[in-house]
Design a protein around this nucleic acid. Sequence first.
DNA 1: CTCGGAGGTTTTGTTGACAATAAATGCCCC
DNA 2: GGGGCATTTATTGTCAACAAAACCTCCGAG
Lengths: 226, 226
Amino acid sequence: MAEVTLQSQTRADEAFDCLQTAIVTGELAPGEKIGEVELCSRFNLTRGPLREALGRLESRGLLVRRPHAGVKVVSVSAAELLELYRIREVMEGLAARQAAERMTDEEIAELQATLDSHEKMIEQAQGQAYYQAEGDYDFHHRIATGSRNAKLAQMLLGDLYYMVRMYRYRLSTSAGRPHLALREHRRIVEAIAQRDGELAEFLMKRHINAARINIEKKIEEGVLTI
Amino acid sequence: MAEVTLQSQTRADEAFDCLQTAIVTGELAPGEKIGEVELCSRFNLTRGPLREALGRLESRGLLVRRPHAGVKVVSVSAAELLELYRIREVMEGLAARQAAERMTDEEIAELQATLDSHEKMIEQAQGQAYYQAEGDYDFHHRIATGSRNAKLAQMLLGDLYYMVRMYRYRLSTSAGRPHLALREHRRIVEAIAQRDGELAEFLMKRHINAARINIEKKIEEGVLTI
DNA sequence: CTCGGAGGTTTTGTTGACAATAAATGCCCC
DNA sequence: GGGGCATTTATTGTCAACAAAACCTCCGAG
């Protein structure tokens, strides 16, 4: 995370962070109907800041809100999750292309170092889960910010990733193809290092498409039920 | 708009709509610092709902908010506006592809009818401005919803279009190439009618890319100063 | 004359109480 | 006994007062 302050600046921010992580980690289950007063007592807040946070979360699509009828956590169907990957495919493809054009040499070096550490974690068996969950997130995060496209990064990091991560937590064994994913990551970074934006875009799109197909297959097999 | 209720259901929604249109139309200028109490008196609201609306607008990127220091309307530079078009290019490309695969025959017929009415407006000289502003929006709106990709439509209609429209209003003569744009629209609809998703995506990307280059050129010429 | 700090003022952030609306329950009628 | 309507209740939406923080101004010293 790029958050510099561990302590949130305002109560509303605090509420926002709490609720967001609670939703992403599954502490608040999808489809669960939640009352405002209950949330207040659970997170030690008052209703003012809470409502502000709820508004923000609603406009980010993490929860839905019917007037006078309460708030419930959004529940994403399997089909919708796959649609999310379709969006990621084109947006992260663009991010990779722009990253290849705009990342500094230092950033590229850091990106490579990141992959090195990921490789070590995979070699140690227990690191596998971490790599899939946080490591992958880390990689894509760097490329999104490296695109130097503020709105693109905001949309990817602020909107899409939280929804995807919501399911990463739940089905932590989601991909289960760490070596393959790492190899694909390496190729993407290679293209970025060579400043080949077109190739980077192509490889990134293929990478995410592969992840989508993998999930699709597992859903069909009944391994993942959403 | 798909809004069925002209009157907003709750005060916060009302505040949200008011502020959003005020920002988009330029009634609230970019970079303008605005106080909460002033907004309350201007739109006949109280601070509770207003703050909720401000939170939503912030998370949509239409305004920025420093703790204890107030709110100011976001000001998008020329470079950032062009970056927005890069995002639109890939996202609307995807929308066009999915629309080609998923739109019903009725929707396609309506889309064609929409273009017919646009053509009439262009023939009547005074319609030109309308076409560029609302007509173009209408066309892209239909394709976004036709993609049957809820999140994609939400991101396009909820996030990107408002930022683009913000500048459409200001520089209403933005494109000024109505006949060409209409022809491109026709080709895209044709591809959709033939269920050729790949072609629809290609044409849409080229269409938006052309619009971006057009704006870029005008900025270089000094016609548009942002 | 300029720079720094302390105080005041304005503005934001927060709180708790009040009002309005929708869901739930129980009652009456069929 | 079942269905529909009215009442009740709990929850959300709204408001106005309070607390805290930042900006501005004014004063003094260098």
